[in-house]
Write a protein that binds this DNA or RNA. Structure first.
Lengths: 221, 221
DNA sequence: TGTTGAAAAGTGGTCTGACCATTTTAGGGT
DNA sequence: ACCCTAAAATGGTCAGACCACTTTTCAACA
């Protein structure tokens, strides 16, 4: 038979073609994609196949859909990616530890990079955080770590970090306590001066402190 | 109407429920999942919705489907994931650098962990690689790094690493050259002895060597 | 009895049409 | 010019049909 019938997964073909379409039509992030029905007709496939492709891309966070509104190229990359992965692969207690550990791997590396790069070290944000901490006595823990990740300049690592940070967000997205003030200030100052050893040490103490507080929500002392 | 209609994306619900189902039924990697029609009925949703969820998971490489055969929990790591992500996000040169850098972040951390953990250090694999290198004169670069990642024991980091390694696989999945022999042996020996500084230094040299060779395929000297 | 081969059942792959819920647009009335 | 409502556009879901491929079943044959 000259059938051959190689037919490789239509919905994967569609993912490819969508990408081409985005390129040729020069669709920018945040802009609207053709409707499912239009895509279906233009690509010569059924609407359900188009949807399978779109849903996949949505799970990856590459597109956003608004019911009744349309489909849009994603602006912020908030893939469910790691979340979904961890949902399937890492379900036990140990895996939560893996998530925290992996997150800290990226944070530590970011600190190393910042300390050894003049332009990053001398960013005014460290000073501003330091002052804010001095005046208000507290800052948002997640904000500092995010700023560290952003400054280090690796976009992929940043995306991965966002996912990991979202995962154990409860422990991270909160105001710092009095106990942490000195550790955070040491970290910030060391960053600014490029003292890598000091910075990592302060960071390590801070994380240890966080771990000790655990998931337990303590109202106050 | 007491409709409420909060209905948040059924296909995302299904992804969740699939995970639960896998857990409760204790479905192992490589084993078969219920058919789409069965899932559709059991979850009380349309088959197309089930498919949208399954297709998403397939794109992530979490499941494999065989036409006419069934759907299976994935065993091998051949996700389109990195491919698709790169297709949409990482197109320029800079992001390829990000991928390599991010991969190396995990490898370096793995080396640190191994050096400071007696059980990991004393694994016989390091010696066996060393001997193999001595006798045959060459080993597969990717194999060594993979073993390092596996040994370090962070499953999430391993999963991420697999994806990153798949991305610039050409440069990684090949036999080592004569030039690299000494660096790799130093790395292995340092790992075994727990000399973290030495190990990282040897690793750094090795990676630098890889970068210099770049994507260019040089037959020989 | 054991083998083989074709039919049947099971399963993924795709398309079509229908209906609902939400958002956007268009028109008409003031 | 403004506002409100009806219509259109769009995504969300479901049901049914048909195809292609794989697995199973079972009867005919050696």
């Amino acid at each position: 038979m000259a059938k051959e019938t190689i037919q490789k997964k239509v919905f994967l073909e569609i993912v490819q073609q969508l990408r081409q379409l985005i390129q040729t039509e020069k669709i920018q992030a945040g802009e609207k994609l053709p409707s499912e029905r239009v895509l279906s007709e233009r690509l010569g496939v059924g609407r359900s196949s188009v949807r399978e492709a779109l849903r996949s891309l949505e799970l990856l966070g590459l597109i956003e859909t608004r019911h009744g509104g349309g489909t849009f190229l994603a602006t912020t990359h908030k893939h469910q990616l790691v979340e979904v992965l961890s949902m399937f692969i890492l379900e036990d207690e140990r895996s939560k530890k893996d998530v925290a550990q992996t997150r800290q791997i990226h944070e530590k590396e970011a600190i190393r990079i910042i300390c050894s790069t003049k332009e990053m070290r001398t960013s005014p944000v460290w000073e501003s955080f330091f002052v804010k901490l001095e005046i208000e006595g507290t800052v948002n823990c997640r904000d500092i770590l995010r700023e560290i990740m952003i400054t280090s300049g690796n976009r992929l690592a940043l995306k991965i970090w966002f996912q990991l940070a979202a995962y154990d967000g409860d422990r991270l997205n909160r105001q710092s306590t009095e106990d942490e003030k000195i550790m955070i200030q040491t970290l910030l100052k060391s960053l600014e001066l490029g003292y890598q050893q000091e910075a990592l040490k302060a960071y390590g103490q801070w994380m240890k402190h966080l771990d000790n507080q655990g998931g337990v929500k303590r109202g106050n002392t």
